[in-house]
Amino acid sequence: MLVLAGLLVGLRILGADQFGISVMALAAGQLIAFPATAQERLVVRLVAQGDSATARNLMARMNSAAILAALATIAISLGMLILGRSGLAIFVAAVGATAVSSGLVALRQSANRASGHLFWGQWPNEVLRPAVTVLAYPVAQALVPGASGSASVLMASSLTLGSVLFAPRLPDRSSADPSVVTDTGSATLSLMVVSAVALAIERVYPLSVGALGGAASVAILTVLLRVIQMANFTQSFAIFYYSPALAAAVGHGEQGQVKRIARRVRAFSVVVAFPVAVICVAFPGSVGELAGLPEIDGLAIRLAAVAIVAQAIGGPSQISLILSGRESIAAKAYVAGAAGSLFAYISVGPDLAIGGAAAVAVAFSVWSAIMMLSARYHFKSWL
Rank of each mutant, 00 (worst) to 15 (best):
A69D: 06
D183C: 04
L68S: 14
A198K: 05
I76Y: 14
A89Y: 04
P206L: 06
A97E: 12
L207Y: 01
G84V: 03
S174I: 07
P178M: 06
L104K: 11
L199A: 12
M155E: 01
S86E: 15
L104D: 05
A114F: 04
T188N: 10
V127C: 09
I76E: 07
V139L: 13
R108A: 14
M155F: 13
G185V: 05
P124I: 10
V95W: 13
H117E: 15
A94W: 10
V204P: 00
L161T: 06
S102T: 10
A94H: 05
A75C: 09
A140M: 02
L88T: 15
T133M: 11
S195R: 13
A200Y: 06
I90Y: 09
G116K: 11
P168M: 04
P124R: 07
N112L: 08
V181E: 12
V132S: 00
P178A: 04
T184W: 08
G87W: 01
V144M: 08
T133P: 06
A142K: 03
T184R: 10
S186F: 11
L143F: 10
V153I: 15
V144P: 06
Q122R: 13
R113E: 12
G162L: 15
G87T: 13
L68C: 11
G116V: 02
M192Q: 11
G149E: 04
P171N: 01
A89V: 11
V132H: 00
S190E: 03
L159E: 08
L189D: 07
A69S: 15
Q141S: 12
V180Y: 08
R203F: 01
A140H: 01
I90R: 01
T98W: 03
A151V: 14
T98L: 13
A187M: 09
M80Q: 13
T182L: 10
A89M: 05
S195V: 00
L154I: 07
G96K: 03
R85F: 12
T73Y: 01
P145A: 06
V197A: 01
N112V: 05
S115D: 14
M80D: 11
V132A: 02
L159D: 03
A196F: 04
S195L: 03
A136D: 02
A156V: 00
S77M: 12
A131N: 02
Q141M: 14
G146R: 02
S77W: 04
P171V: 02
D172F: 12
V153G: 00
L161E: 02
T160A: 05
L191T: 01
G79V: 07
W123M: 15
A156W: 00
L199Y: 08
R113M: 09
V164D: 01
P130M: 08
W120G: 06
P130L: 05
